[in-house]
């Protein structure tokens, strides 16, 4: 066989194998990377999406009118004991367990297998009590499941919707631009369906809160503008149509009560 043809044949065969293999590898890698995004586990029809970074522990929150959930990345948790939850997913003896974490979970929490749903095992945590950033929850029953190193904790609807979101690709990854992961708290509220606001976004870093509210009409926008201009430590950055951007020092949060008082009065 002609040497040139032989070389050509070798290169052609190699390309015929390598090209689809590269395409397949890139597709798989993109899918894996999407799975390593915490918002992959939040449903797309969520109304509230948040990110909290507190003392090195960070998690995402999602909620709508029927469901809510918290998404933890086990590798990001400062206290390795929390990964005991993860270990529960892969062994037998689900009857009971205890775990402690940086989030002050009680040591008498019972965790057990609740149901298998679409290849995922859902666990129920009974008598869950914990305190986190001043929020105290006692004797609650919550559900959780683990996937790809992420733990989703929430009410039962929240868990079902999270699993469905991962399987149908109707997840909240598209909303990631609304959240600022360098802030301590970043929150986005949208499509709430009330008559006052269309969306609310805010980021809290240290004591500085920056926010943006899009109102549905001028009446409520003017109420808000007059209220916030009376608040100590608050500053309006811009007003554009129904959209108001503002800054706030939360040390003067007492002013929030003033704001509520003013709003009520109006």
């Amino acid at each position: 066989m002609n040497v040139f043809l032989k070389r050509l044949l070798i290169i052609a065969i190699a390309l015929a194998v390598i090209a689809p293999a590269i395409y397949y590898a890139i597709t798989l890698n993109n899918a894996n990377q999407r799975q390593s995004d915490p918002l992959y586990y939040a449903p797309s029809d969520t109304n509230v999406l948040g990110y909290v970074n507190y003392n090195g522990t960070h998690f995402y929150v999602y909620a709508n009118n029927r469901s809510y959930g918290l998404i933890f990345d086990t590798s990001s948790l400062s206290n390795v004991n929390f990964s005991r939850i993860s270990s529960l997913m892969h062994g037998n003896g689900m009857n009971g367990s205890t775990f402690n974490s940086s989030s002050n979970f009680t040591s008498k929490t019972n965790i057990s297998l609740y149901a298998d749903y679409k290849d995922y095992s859902i666990y129920v945590i009974r008598n869950l009590s914990f305190a986190f950033i001043g929020l105290s929850i006692t004797n609650q029953t919550l559900y959780l499941y683990e996937s790809n190193g992420f733990i989703v904790l929430g009410n039962l609807n929240g868990i079902y919707e999270s699993i469905n979101a991962t399987l149908s690709s109707r997840n909240a990854i598209g909303y990631s631009g609304y959240l600022n992961s360098s802030a301590n708290v970043s929150m986005a509220v949208f499509n709430v369906g009330n008559k006052i606001v269309k969306s609310v976004y805010f980021n809290l870093t240290g004591n500085n809160l920056t926010g943006s509210i899009r109102f549905l009409n001028y009446t409520y926008e003017s109420y808000f503008l007059s209220a916030i201009s009376n608040m100590k430590g608050a500053k309006i950055i811009s007003v554009h149509d129904f959209n108001v951007k503002f800054k706030l020092d939360i040390r003067s949060l007492i002013s929030a009560y003033d704001l509520m008082g003013v709003l009520n009065a109006q």
Binding site: I18, S75, S76, G149
Partner: peptide, 30 residues
């Protein structure tokens, strides 16, 4: 930031690794 999971690697991770090995294999041999 090491990740720890006691479950085996997922099928997609295995297929990705195999695809990468095959790319090196065929490209290098050619």
């Amino acid at each position: 930031s090491p990740t720890i999971s006691l479950s085996p690697a997922s099928a997609s991770k295995i297929f990705l690794a195999v695809a990468v090995m095959i790319i090196y294999l065929v490209a290098s041999l050619a």
